[in-house]
Amino acid sequence: ESFERTINIAKGNSSLGMTVSANKDGLGMIVRSIIHGGAISRDGRIAIGDCILSINEESTISVTNAQARAMLRRHSLIGPDIKITYVP
């Protein structure tokens, strides 16, 4: 059984350190890789294959690959914290 989780990740000045791609069925974006030493890796809660539904409350539903990457990059630049809703 999968259910949504919303977490805050304190990334400070470091990068999030993950790559994503659009989910084929349009439901959010899938975590493709996690870079060791990045904020996601240090936090430890998000794993490869998890589905991200929103970043800082901006929905990732029906985004393209390019939009998913641009959204991740944009939110990575805002502030020291990032809020991610995902399904493990």
Rank of each mutant, 00 (worst) to 15 (best):
E1G: 06
E1H: 05
E1Y: 11
E1V: 09
E1N: 15
E1M: 13
S2C: 11
S2L: 10
S2T: 12
S2D: 12
F3T: 09
F3A: 09
F3N: 11
F3Y: 10
F3V: 11
F3I: 11
E4I: 12
E4M: 11
E4Y: 13
R5P: 01
R5C: 09
R5T: 08
T6V: 09
T6W: 02
I7H: 02
I7A: 05
I7G: 02
I7R: 01
N8K: 13
N8L: 13
N8P: 03
N8H: 12
I9K: 01
I9A: 01
I9F: 04
A10L: 10
A10H: 14
A10V: 14
K11Q: 09
K11L: 13
K11G: 10
K11P: 06
K11H: 12
K11S: 10
G12W: 06
G12C: 03
G12P: 09
N13K: 10
N13F: 09
N13L: 09
S14G: 13
S15Y: 12
S15T: 12
S15I: 11
L16K: 00
L16C: 03
L16M: 06
G17F: 00
G17D: 03
G17K: 03
G17L: 00
G17R: 01
M18C: 06
M18Y: 03
M18F: 08
M18L: 11
T19V: 14
T19F: 08
T19Y: 10
V20I: 11
V20S: 01
V20T: 04
V20H: 04
S21C: 10
S21W: 07
S21G: 11
S21Q: 12
S21H: 10
S21K: 09
A22S: 11
A22C: 11
A22W: 05
A22M: 15
A22H: 08
N23T: 07
N23V: 04
N23S: 13
N23I: 02
N23R: 11
K24M: 10
K24E: 12
K24S: 12
D25F: 10
D25T: 11
L27Q: 15
L27W: 11
G28F: 03
G28T: 02
G28M: 01
G28I: 00
G28K: 00
G28E: 00
M29F: 07
M29W: 06
M29I: 12
M29D: 00
I30P: 00
I30K: 07
I30L: 08
I30Y: 07
I30D: 07
I30S: 08
V31Q: 03
V31K: 04
R32V: 10
R32Y: 03
R32G: 07
R32N: 12
R32T: 14
S33Y: 06
S33F: 03
S33D: 14
S33P: 02
S33Q: 12
S33N: 14
S33C: 05
I34S: 01
I35H: 15
I35V: 14
I35T: 13
I35Q: 12
H36G: 12
H36M: 09
G37A: 05
G37L: 03
G37E: 08
G37I: 03
G38Y: 05
G38Q: 10
G38R: 05
A39G: 04
A39L: 06
A39T: 08
I40D: 02
S41L: 04
S41D: 14
R42K: 15
D43K: 00
D43H: 02
D43Q: 03
D43N: 00
D43T: 01
G44Q: 05
G44T: 04
G44F: 01
G44S: 06
G44P: 03
R45A: 01
R45W: 02
R45L: 01
I46T: 02
I46C: 00
I46W: 00
I46V: 07
I46H: 02
I46D: 01
I46R: 03
A47R: 13
A47E: 12
A47L: 07
A47P: 00
A47K: 14
A47N: 14
A47S: 14
A47Q: 14
A47V: 07
I48M: 07
I48E: 12
I48Q: 10
G49M: 03
G49F: 03
G49D: 05
D50T: 01
D50R: 00
D50E: 01
D50F: 02
D50I: 00
C51A: 11
C51E: 13
C51S: 11
C51Q: 13
C51P: 02
C51D: 03
C51L: 13
I52N: 01
I52A: 00
I52L: 06
I52P: 01
I52C: 03
I52D: 03
L53A: 03
L53S: 06
L53W: 05
L53T: 15
L53H: 10
S54E: 09
S54C: 09
S54H: 05
S54F: 09
I55S: 02
I55D: 05
I55G: 01
I55Y: 01
I55V: 12
N56A: 05
N56T: 03
N56W: 01
N56V: 00
N56C: 01
N56E: 05
N56H: 01
E57Q: 11
E57P: 00
E57G: 15
E58D: 09
E58M: 06
E58Y: 05
E58H: 08
E58C: 08
E58W: 05
E58N: 06
S59K: 11
S59H: 05
T60Q: 03
I61G: 15
I61D: 11
I61Q: 15
S62F: 10
S62M: 10
S62E: 13
S62G: 14
V63E: 05
V63C: 13
V63H: 06
V63L: 12
V63Q: 09
T64K: 05
T64P: 05
T64F: 01
T64E: 05
N65K: 10
N65F: 04
N65P: 10
A66T: 11
A66Y: 09
A66E: 15
A66C: 09
A66N: 11
Q67W: 05
Q67S: 10
Q67T: 11
A68Q: 05
A68C: 08
A68S: 05
A68M: 08
R69T: 14
R69Y: 09
R69G: 10
A70M: 12
A70G: 08
M71F: 10
M71Y: 08
L72P: 03
R73L: 11
R73A: 15
R73V: 11
R73D: 15
R74A: 08
R74K: 13
H75T: 10
H75G: 09
H75V: 13
S76P: 04
S76A: 13
S76N: 10
S76F: 06
L77M: 15
L77F: 10
I78H: 13
I78R: 14
G79F: 06
G79M: 06
G79S: 12
G79N: 09
G79D: 06
G79V: 06
G79E: 08
P80Y: 07
P80A: 13
P80G: 15
P80I: 07
P80E: 14
P80N: 13
D81E: 13
D81L: 08
D81A: 09
I82Q: 02
I82E: 02
I82S: 06
K83R: 12
K83Q: 09
I84S: 00
T85A: 07
T85E: 05
T85G: 07
T85V: 08
T85L: 05
T85R: 12
T85C: 12
Y86E: 02
Y86V: 03
Y86P: 01
Y86N: 03
Y86C: 02
Y86L: 04
V87K: 09
V87Q: 08
V87L: 12
P88C: 08
P88L: 03
P88Q: 08
P88G: 07
P88S: 11
P88A: 08
P88K: 12
